[in-house]
Amino acid sequence: MSETNYMLETRDLEKTFKTGTVVTPVLKGIDFHVANGEWVSIMGRSGAGKSTLLYQMSLLDEPTSGEIYIDGREAHTLTEREKMRMRLYEFGFVFQEYALMPELTALENVVLPLLMKRFSYDAARERAKSALGRVGLSARLGNLPSALSGGEQQRVSIARAIAERPEILFADEPTANLDHESSDVIMGIFRELHSDGQTIVMVTHEEEYGAMTERIVRIDDGRVLSGEPASDKRP
């Protein structure tokens, strides 16, 4: 096993989809890394392979070849169950669409994974409340997702992801379905999390939001174009 100081690193990561006789190479050898506490955005045109890369890194999918290291540990060889544990204990996820269970209130949606992490019910509630407080939703704890705006639902998703500080927060176009105002709120929350030292890997289309991150990794045709520092572009 090789030495690495990165929170997340991929080496020569490849992903090829095969549907019948159709073979679609999407990732063609991605070397990518994120340092502890770093906020990285992945950008590129539609179909470039951004989401695909994020799914491989966050262990939601199985790469065709290549290596993935999480906090220095080999992750691509883990069993399905171990990957699940890693997603539960070490990752936080924010999806493009609001991914909340419709029968669970805002609070309950945040409580659920904490119960899975063996928190007592009371402790889980306390943590969930404070996480929802951090995203400014203390007044909406009892609302079902159907009684929340899109931006509010996305904030609940973030609260669920960060309730117990994850090693890495993954977000795939978290603002894609939101209006400008709500998007700004979400990005504000990310910035705050980052300033607390949260490692964040975020896919985005918006140059404006990419520019808010520390580093932009541009992907095109399944390869990394550049790893330009973005800090100097920050407003």
């Binding site: 997603r87 539960l88 990752f91 999806f95 991914a99 269970m101 899975m116």
Partner: peptide, 18 residues
């Protein structure tokens, strides 16, 4: 009808058994 949510729950680490 909840397949997407079931996928997301599994994605964030809720066990399939649960």
């Amino acid at each position: 009808t909840r397949r997407k949510f079931i996928g997301i729950l599994k994605g964030i680490g809720i066990s399939g058994e649960a």
